[in-house]
Design a protein around this nucleic acid. Structure first.
Lengths: 222, 222
DNA sequence: ATATATATTTAAGCTAGCTTAAAAGTCTGT
DNA sequence: ACAGACTTTTAAGCTAGCTTAAATATATAT
């Protein structure tokens, strides 16, 4: 059994390599775990005998299939617990991350199997992120960033790129949630913001940054 | 914030003093936590500055009100999670202890408040043990051990004294659960066992040990 | 190509929590 | 009241994971 800290390292490496194609640097891991680069080097050396990843001095680190399995299991547990917190306990989507971060370390395969069934085998978490199945496979969905949509196109919100609390609360204020319909009214060249129609009722302007963080399933052209 | 280990120590002291009126000995704590007496002394010394308990060399230890608060909160969390596991996830009452032992360390007041509401503010866990409220108060119930019931008396199972897996599985085999009706047919002097009628259908003999471990709410005499 | 900046590793040392072995205190029976 | 048994504490030392400071690699800009 891996310790909680070991799990945190593996998941951090997974999240970093997911973006940075390839390997995770000492500094990136340290930043993600709010610890020092020296601690990371120390840990990587101690852990490298456990076969979760390949480590070469000064070259960074990448996960083995064993490490990927552990990481996707953690992601699966995290996202299932988030569904539980939002769907059953009625937490808001901006409140669940830290609690799920703890719950993902609970160790019981039977628990996760039963929780999955109890929740109705969800494919996506409350932020629209896919929940890997037991084998670690994700359900892929065709989606596009609002930033890449043109005037007169519309779609339904299916996910958010980043889930920091301030962004999610901002969306709450705008009444934007998963399932919300968005229609692009116009693109503003000057600062790349977009004027949009939310749920066929309210007009708002979304900044480039906000638009970039929203994923939609595009409606077929009418 | 207390570490998980600190929480385990406080809960162990609480459980021991609950039975042994007064204080918990080093050996008793060590036995409960499967660690060495030397580790316990070490820990008690380091922790005694945190005001959870009074410690005097060679005299054992007893909780302060701060320590009792922590312990009852842990008991509350443990038992609420057990209700969740049995009522919602359909675990059997003999499978939930170890998982709840992990879940009780999850840190979020809001989570416990919402879980409590979601479960319908239960007063007892799946073994019939009372769930302390937020203030640490237990709901007391009038109950009697089956061992102390006489021939022709009957009642309904409301709790079990010990919850070790083998006992709970034995009860499963006998179709005895919370809510089961038991009528004492006769007391066998020789070995203090009891012949009983279960749910008005099956006759069984229960040993002194088994009878001692079962709590019933007695039916009024007819 | 070399100086400078940045990234990484090494070294030394800390705390929490554990262990075993030995020392010291407390209890019990005669 | 004291010998022997049991309990508790002390002492020394271990591992996991952390820190800071210094040393070493690597990358970059001229």
């Amino acid at each position: 059994m891996a310790t909680q800290t070991e799990e945190d390292y593996i998941k951090a490496i997974y999240k970093i390599t997911e973006k940075n194609q390839g390997s995770a640097s000492t500094n990136a891991i340290a930043a993600r775990l709010s610890t020092s680069p020296a601690s990371v080097t120390d840990m990587l050396k101690r852990l490298s005998s456990k076969d979760y990843f390949h480590y070469e001095k000064y070259k960074g680190v990448y996960l083995t299939s064993k490490g990927i399995k552990m990481a996707t299991t953690l992601v699966r547990k995290h996202r299932l617990w988030e569904v539980f917190l939002v769907d059953k306990l009625k937490f808001s989507w901006d409140e669940v991350h830290d609690i799920a971060e703890q719950l993902e370390h609970i160790n019981s395969d039977e628990l996760i199997t039963k929780l999955d069934g109890y929740l109705g085998y969800p494919k996506y978490d409350p932020h629209g992120d896919p929940i890997p199945n037991e084998a670690g496979k994700f359900t892929i969905r065709s989606q596009v960033s609002l930033f890449n949509m043109n005037a007169n196109e519309s779609g339904v919100i299916v996910g958010v790129r980043e889930h920091d609390t301030s962004f999610l609360r901002y969306l709450n204020d705008l009444n934007i949630n998963l399932g919300t319909t968005i229609k692009v009214i116009k693109h503003i060249e000057f600062d790349h913001s977009k004027k949009v129609l939310i749920n066929n009722t309210t007009e708002e302007v979304l900044s480039q940054k906000a638009a970039h963080n929203l994923f939609l399933k595009k409606n077929k052209d009418i």
